[in-house]
Design a protein around this nucleic acid. Structure first.
Lengths: 339, 339
DNA sequence: AAAGTCAATGACAAGGTTGTCATTTTTAGC
DNA sequence: GCTAAAAATGACAACCTTGTCATTGACTTT
């Protein structure tokens, strides 16, 4: 295992110069820089994380806190984050917000105390708490929000455009001729739920159709059972929708089940679309048309921002507001309405 | 942030003695040990990971390789592993086996090269490869198998008793009066599939019933679509089973869907049970009776074994074969057969 | 041509822990 | 009560990197 000393010898410079090159610092002649780079390559040198951490006091660990490990969204995000961390040579340390484990702030403090992380990712719904943001800011901890809205322009955040995506997804149904489209909304505690609902309404209203009422929009809270009940209510009503837009794939799967229990076929009797593009979307039958959240890209952006922030010497780097493009994935779960 | 020096001063000993106490080494008088422990507590001291890693050359990272991030099993396991690592003050680094990324061995080598991990967890189906085990053994990398069978008693492994669990699950159905029980089997590449199937057959045969044939056992490969097809085939046959035992919850959910499409109600027309107890089992309706894999306990055991192994000075600690107890979770998806 | 400026580079210490080896204290044996 | 062995403890170096500050050499200004 070569060390910085070996590189320095090979390049004929001091170790400090090698260090400068590694860290992209100024005051190194271009020819020297190249010579050092060459030596590093030839020796296949990679610096010791441990020594760096010891010297700089900065940890490579990144903390992520979440509250519902069983949701398809979080499972998918976990995978993306772990992968992004591994790719970036960093580590993910997770903590679980317990329902009855005290206030969010207490749990956050306990997590930081225990893990000593200096970099944190806040995911929904915690990312919407200004109290947590305030706390992290005051403690000088670098953090980034995986938030559906840029509520805090002082803080870096990564997101997709939930509202626009929902609008596009709804438009897709409208384009096929659907006029009564139901919406199973998400948990109101998540801003994403609000945005998706707004996008859905926007699309409908902009086609000159009446704004959907309570018969067409039911709260499913990102919960399978509630979504199942919601879909059954909708589909067994007097004037059932010909299509259902669920605010998550988990809930879309519930709509499938509701349809099955009522003897309705997807998509012939009722079209169903979802949101997230988690694995279930591709595996259930018929495969689900849905909005693909760019999980991997969003995760990579989070890690990138945190890396930059912690390598930056100015204590408060300018916040970045990143919006990652999404896609509509058209599969087999919707078709034109029957009549 | 107190260092070992502060502790040493407070306890009135040398830093080396504090180090000895921390690492549970011999040759420390009992009274001294207590004094040091007291000082550590009073100062709320915790050692620097970075310094330890630098000095010992041992990383705190633990690698885990998997192949199907979308399976409910793997999602659940990821969560358990991350949590176990965080709890133990260690980090999880993950790698994904790509279908077309070269041989397993090549991908394993690349992973180790890239991450430099010294501790690895092998999960199904990779844990069954003796080539990989051989490779890791020769490279002197500590590893533990999360394997359903103890094929390699030279290597530590953590598992549950898949065969017994499957037998109990089947017995539960038999106890309710079912005589024709279908089985949607897992991927034959996984030893677990074989064991679960054997447990299922064992339970049936031991009741004096005929060994199930190809009409009752269909390969679902842990895949939703195949399982859906399998369940439809079974349920629409001449003499359909009154109960279905799926070798994973994912596949049990497929059986639900198959039942729905055929106008059959669960559990009144057909009982369904699964295996894994992933989140879907509690959320789908009716909630699924299944075998609870002790994910959290198994993950914690894996981490514990690796920790012991890397703190142990003798280069090859004795392998441990841990079998973690499972549970049958009875929910609402089965009842006595109709007639 | 001397003085001052700035870029480029290097010598050295420090960061917190553990291994090696030397030293001191305790115990055992007679 | 003395010696030998064993147990307990400590001094110091080493792990690899980066920050501080000093030094060198080149270039600009007067």
């Amino acid at each position: 295992m070569p060390t910085i000393i070996d590189v320095a010898k090979k390049a004929g410079v001091s170790i400090k110069t090698v260090s400068r090159v590694m860290n992209n610092q100024t005051n190194v002649k271009e020819t020297t820089r190249e010579r050092v780079h060459l030596a590093m390559e030839q020796l296949d040198y990679s610096p010791s994380d441990a020594a760096r951490q010891l010297r700089t006091g900065k940890s490579l660990a990144i903390g992520m806190l979440y509250s519902d490990p069983s949701s398809g969204y979080q499972s998918r995000l976990n995978h993306a984050m772990m992968q992004a961390c591994s790719d970036a040579g960093r580590y993910l340390v997770v903590g679980l917000f317990e329902e009855h484990g005290g206030s969010w702030q207490q749990q956050l403090e306990a997590f930081i105390e225990r893990t000593k992380v200096n970099n944190i990712i806040l995911v929904p719904p915690m990312c919407d708490s200004s109290i947590l943001q305030e706390y992290l800011f005051n403690r000088g901890i670098q953090f980034v929000l995986m938030s559906p809205s840029h509520t805090a322009p002082k803080v870096s955040s990564v997101s997709m455009d939930d509202q626009m995506a929902a609008r596009e997804m709804t438009q897709h149904l409208l384009d096929q001729g659907h006029k009564r489209i139901g919406h199973i909304a998400g948990d109101p505690a998540h801003i994403a739920s609000f945005l998706r609902r707004r996008g859905y309404e926007e699309a409908i209203v902009s086609m000159g159709l009446p704004r959907p009422g309570n018969d067409l929009v039911i709260d499913g809270q990102f919960d399978f059972r509630r979504a199942l009940a919601a879909a059954e209510t909708m589909l067994s009503g007097d004037n059932p929708p010909t299509a259902i837009f669920a605010a998550s794939d988990d809930m879309a799967a519930a709509a499938y089940m509701a349809a099955g229990r009522l003897g309705l076929a997807v998509p012939d009797d009722v079209s169903v679309v979802g949101f997230d593009n988690i694995s279930i979307a591709g595996t259930i039958w018929p495969s689900l048309t849905t909005v693909a959240q760019p999980f991997d890209d969003m995760a990579a952006e989070c890690i990138r921002i945190l890396r930059n922030a912690s390598s930056d010497d100015s204590s408060r780097p300018a916040p970045e507001l990143v919006v990652v493009p999404h896609k509509i994935i058209v599969r087999s779960s919707c078709t034109a309405p029957a009549n």
